[in-house]
Amino acid sequence: MSATAKPCLEIRSLSAVLANGQRVLRSVSLAVQPGEVRALVGESGAGKTMIGKAVLGVLPKSVRIVEGEMIIEGEDLGRLDAKARRTLIGARTALIPQDPLTALNPSRRIGPQMTDRLVRILGWSGDRADSRIRQLLDEVQIRDPERVLKSYPHELSGGMRQRVLIAAAFAAEPRLIVADEPTTALDVTVQKQILRLIAELQRDHGTAILFVTHDLGVVAKISQKVSVLYAGKVVEEAATVDLFASPQHPYTRALMLATPRYTDPYASLKPVDETVLAGLAAEIAAADQAWRPSHG
């Protein structure tokens, strides 16, 4: 991959605050190159979902972006009006959500729900959308598409629903997919299948993915690059192989020690060290200090 290729997604120094002024994102910068999987890893509450929502333009009302740029394929979202931004996001991106039950409309059958977007937003003909959806259902290894297309979401298993959502995400050939913990709500055996499916489709379609997870095992399996997030701040960024070979930041090392291994599930498990957390707190306080004068 050449260094001059235009990134699929670039986030520059993105900061966001809650209504009470508390910062949830602290000058986050990261880039996802075309066709690359970047993992975004961090503990619960680190702000992983916030970054995904910011990119997709669906931040909750209580969260306000106070600085930074988000650029999708060279287009700065901040410079577009609301309508153009929606169009760009709708055409170039898609989401694979965490909870496959609530991400599907409970009162609509799967078929119309999937084709609707291709027809109404992208202006495809009904036949083209229909055959596209069937092709994708085949790619996610759904063997009885007729039944699935006629089903309501609650009539499918969690794994099936997640397959449907993956098919839906890839259907419109987005350039970037945000996958927000797409396997967390599933049981372990299904998790592996779903992860493999996402990796397969990603490779076949050459789609870039921003893959949000709190699981370093998943990071190792699926991503080429990784950003480690703590309290809304990127504390380390590296190629995935390098990160596992030589983690630089003490928090990354602590996170690795806190992750169970298949070979030795219980032995090396440790909560994140007190001194590491104290170091992080100091780091974040310093960053906030440096940030406030120019923005407060």
Binding site: V58, G90, L95, P97, N105, R108, R120
Partner: peptide
């Protein structure tokens, strides 16, 4: 608050369209 409403937003549906086509059938 459901994710399917958010997904519809991401896909590019307008607010009015989401209210009538996605939310209304569920409260009907």
């Amino acid at each position: 608050r459901m994710d399917y409403v958010e997904s519809a937003r991401i896909a590019g549906y307008g607010r009015m369209g989401i209210m009538l086509r996605e939310v209304l059938p569920n409260v009907l």
